[in-house]
Design a protein around this nucleic acid. Structure first.
Length: 470
RNA sequence: GCGGGUAUAGUUCAAUGGUAGAACACUGGUUUGUGGUACCAGGUACGAGGGUCCGAUUCCCUCUACUCGCCCCA
């Protein structure tokens, strides 16, 4: 289902190209490459028109963090590349195909973060957060990078909200993470999402399970696609979520992780499901859900929503990663977390016409006429601002008419007019934009009068900013 | 990474092998210091590069971007 876009469709433009050509003819200098006035592939601008949705998301996230006791952490966009390689794992798409890695001038091998957890885990170890009161709950919000082929809702740079909890193995924490995710989504008005849940066990039981799985797939090797034959060597778990028909047929008969969990992992999973039932969350056990990152243990989940066409969109996902901290060099620490894709959330919010947040609009417009008044109006503006009166202006405009037009368009309740005469008299004209009436008063009484007028206005008007004058 | 579609003004869209139009938006104006409507005026737009042609925005090729499906996920 194509969605209405707010951003421009045409992005392939070179402005000033013609000037450039003339330059080349008339000068001896080496022609510079024209500046490509477009975002780099897969990167996108979030324009003012879209910000109300983003505001709403940010607001909800901030409140949810408070409610669930998460503290914000900001980690760099850039880390040493091997942090991601080691934590996420070789043989994963994210590392093998999608990592934005490069060598710096100082010969450091670095990469743009493809997700948050690795960097947050690094920070956890680096700053000795293991001595913090457990569990340590951390929230991040920012951009992540994956070098794959862009599509709607799939970018090379996109925004994620990320939640990580360190130091607690109790499955109730797993459940609480689901509760938090569900809370965020429903606060945004996104209802009826599907939680897909699975347990992929711990290294011990997974090892046994993988042997079973490999021998199963080995016996059916002929029926697998090319990719899966490679996966069989490197990462056999991923054959389970291959979308090729023939592979999924083979996979449907494969042994399932949930049937081969060790006692501890089975108990953990069972408890989680009991907690989820308690929360009355709608979830589906999906034995083919294995996730793209190596560091997961036990609980893994994804959050799906279906559009009108029945197509599924992933809004987020996560899981437990008890082995991660130890793997990258810290002391063994259980942990769980998840991420949400903000562009996907915003897309969903637009689709369902969810609430967005627009910052308060000015109720007062300040118009000025003539050079003396122009000077005075700066002070007047400052005084209004000090008194908490949101004021719009259009200082660059000269004619009163165009300023009035601007005021009308902004839907303000009151327009203040200060001209040559008023500037000399230290007065100001206060015009009621609804009734069209106006009066002149001294500037010293202005603030009080405006406050009073706005108060009574609030009752009369519906606040939609529309004026039907005359 | 693989396969398909698209690319004209800020936006949404027209037309055309012979010098590109509209609507909306934007700026200003319709006589002195007042909004709406109406009217008038205002534009460095054919994504980039190459080819065919007397002539290409239009046909062909390449590139780029977006987009759809696959893959993957967020």
């Amino acid at each position: 289902m194509p969605r209405k876009k707010i951003t421009a469709k045409k992005t392939s433009i070179v402005k000033g190209n013609k000037v450039k050509k003339a330059d080349r003819k008339n000068s001896n200098s080496i022609p510079e490459e024209p500046i490509l006035l477009q975002t780099v592939r897969g990167m996108h601008d979030i324009l003012p028109g879209e910000q109300p949705y983003w505001n709403q998301v940010r607001n909800v996230l901030e409140k949810s963090c408070q409610k669930f006791g998460y503290q914000r952490i900001d980690v760099p966009v850039l880390e040493y590349a091997n942090l991601f390689v080691r934590s996420i794992g070789e043989g994963t798409d994210v590392v093998d195909k999608e990592l934005y890695s490069f060598v710096t001038r100082g010969k450091d091998k670095v990469a743009l973060r493809p997700e948050f957890t690795a960097g947050v885990a690094r920070a956890y170890i680096q700053h000795g957060m293991n001595v913090y009161a457990k569990p340590v709950k951390l929230f991040s919000f920012g951009t992540v990078y994956r070098y794959d082929r862009p599509q709607e809702g799939r970018y090379r740079e996109h925004w994620q909200a990320n939640f990580d909890v360190f130091g607690e193995d109790d499955p109730i924490l797993d459940a609480q993470v689901f509760q938090l995710a569900d809370g965020v989504l429903s606060s945004l008005g996104i209802k009826g999402v599907q939680f897909q849940v699975n347990s992929i066990g711990c290294p011990q039981c997974r090892k046994e399970y993988l042997q079973l799985l490999v021998s199963y797939f080995e016996s059916k090797k002929q029926k697998l696609c090319k990719d899966c034959k490679t996966r069989l060597e490197i990462n056999p778990l991923r054959i389970l979520d291959c979308k090729e028909d023939k592979c999924s047929q083979v996979a449907s008969g494969a042994p399932q992780t949930v049937d081969h969990l060790c006692t501890d992992c089975r108990t953990h999973f069972k408890s989680l499901l009991e907690y989820l039932d308690e929360l009355e969350l709608s979830y589906t056990i999906n034995p083919h859900l294995v996730r793209g990152l190596d560091y997961y243990t036990r609980t893994v989940f994804e959050i799906w929503t279906l559009d009108e066409g029945g197509k599924k969109h992933s809004l987020g996902g996560g899981g437990r990663y008890n082995g991660l901290i130890e793997k990258i060099g810290g002391e063994s620490t259980p942990a769980i977390g998840f991420g949400l894709g903000i562009e996907r959330l915003v897309m969903e919010m637009k689709r369902i016409n969810a609430k967005s947040y627009k910052p308060p609009r000015p109720k007062v417009f300040l118009a000025q006429l003539g050079s003396l008044a122009k000077k005075k109006s700066l002070r007047l503006f400052a005084e209004l601002e000090r008194n908490g009166i949101l004021t719009a202006e259009s200082f660059g405009r000269g004619s009163l008419k165009s300023q009035m037009r601007a005021a009308n368009r902004l839907g303000v309740d009151i327009t203040l007019i200060i001209g040559q005469k008023e500037a000399l008299d230290e007065t100001v004209i206060v015009k009621n934009m609804t009734s069209g009436t106006q009066e002149t008063m001294t500037q010293s009484k202005l603030v009080g009068a405006i406050k009073k007028a706005l108060k009574s206005k609030l009752i009369i008007r519906n606040g939609n900013g529309e004026h039907k004058s005359y």
